[in-house]
Design a protein around this nucleic acid. Structure first.
Lengths: 218, 218
DNA sequence: AAATATTTTTAGATAAGCCTAAAAATATTT
DNA sequence: AAATATTTTTAGGCTTATCTAAAAATATTT
């Protein structure tokens, strides 16, 4: 059985190996977890002994089949709890991440099954991320970063890449919650920023960084 | 801030100092927590340094005002989560203790407030135990152990002293859930067992141990 | 009250998870 | 390809929470 710390490492390795390529570096794990590379080396050896990652010294790690299943179960729990917090307890989408970080480690398969049922088998969490099923299978709709849209393209906000409080509160302020229609009015080559129309209501400028973190379905 | 382990010790000390008298022995704590007396000595010193218990070597511990508040907050969380599991997720009363043991350590004052509201501000958990309010205040109805009733006395099951799976499943089998009327048909002096009428429906014999763990309101 | 038994504490280990500092391996420059 | 820079690992410590074994204090018998 994995400890809380082991689950957190595994989850991070899973997330990092989605964005980048197969092998994940020690430093990137340390950075994600706000820990030191030396601690990561230790933990990786332990995860390797437990067969949840494949590891060759100095070569980075990649997650094993078994490890991926375990990571996806933690992610499933995290996202289901987020739905609970928002839909049932009326939290806002920027308040739930930290609490779900704790709740995701509660061990009880029956609890998760019942929670899933209680919530009506939701497919997506409040940030638009897909919820893996019991077996870890994810079915996600295609998501395109806002920055990749062409001039005059439009689409609907379907998810966010960054779930930080700060970013979500900024989106709230813009009125660009999930489900909002967005159209590209202008693309500024100089700094990658964009002028966009939000919900056919107002036009605003957003930075390149923001446009990378808003995910659109067309 | 207290660790999970510290919270568990504190909760146990609180419970033990309710049943017995003021000073709680090292051995009794060790027994309750399935740990060794040496470990308890260590932990007590730590809790004492943190001012949540009063401790004089070889004299046992008693919980401080501050410690009692913290213990009651953990108990509040435990009992609210039990209500959630039974009322919302349709768990049976014998399934919830272990899960609540995990959930009680989740740290988020807002979460507990919202959960309380979501559940309709319940006063009692599924085992009949009173739920402390935000400030740790408990208002509990008088509870008398079944074994203290006189011949022909009757009352309603209001709570159970033992919340173990085994005991609760036995009560289910008897049909003696909370709210059930019970009348004393006979008291066997020899071994402390009793013959009782359950819900005006059937008469059964229960052992002295069982009759100590069923709490009645008259 | 002396002897014995019990309880409690201390001493010394162990494992998990983290750290800093130094060494080793790999990558990048020149 | 040699020198330099970066990344990763190892070595050695620290804290928390546990343990066993032994010592010290308290309780109970005789």
């Amino acid at each position: 059985m994995l400890s809380f710390a082991e689950e957190n490492y595994l989850k991070t390795i899973y997330h990092l190996s989605k964005g980048g390529r197969k092998d994940v570096s020690t430093n990137s794990i340390a950075e994600s977890l706000h820990t030191k590379p030396a601690s990561v080396s230790d933990m990786i050896r332990k995860l390797s002994r437990k067969k949840v990652v494949n590891y060759k010294k100095y070569q980075g790690v990649n997650i094993s089949k078994e490890g991926k299943e375990k990571a996806l179960l933690v992610i499933r729990k995290h996202r289901l709890w987020e739905v609970f917090l928002v839909n049932k307890l009326k939290f806002s989408w920027d308040q739930v991440h930290e609490i779900a970080e704790q709740l995701e480690h509660i061990r009880s398969p029956l609890l998760i099954e019942r929670l899933d049922q209680f919530l009506g088998f939701p497919q997506y969490d409040p940030h638009g991320d897909p919820i893996p099923d019991k077996k870890g299978v994810i079915n996600s709709k295609p998501q395109i970063p806002l920055c990749d849209l062409k001039l005059n393209d439009s689409g609907v906000v379907i998810a966010v890449k960054d779930s930080s409080k700060e970013f979500l509160q900024y989106l709230d302020k813009l009125g660009a919650a999930i489900g909002t229609k967005i159209r590209v009015l202008d693309k500024i080559a100089y700094d990658g920023s964009m002028e966009i129309d939000i919900g056919d209501q107002k036009s605003v400028f957003v930075s390149g960084e923001v446009s990378e973190n808003i995910l659109i379905t067309s």
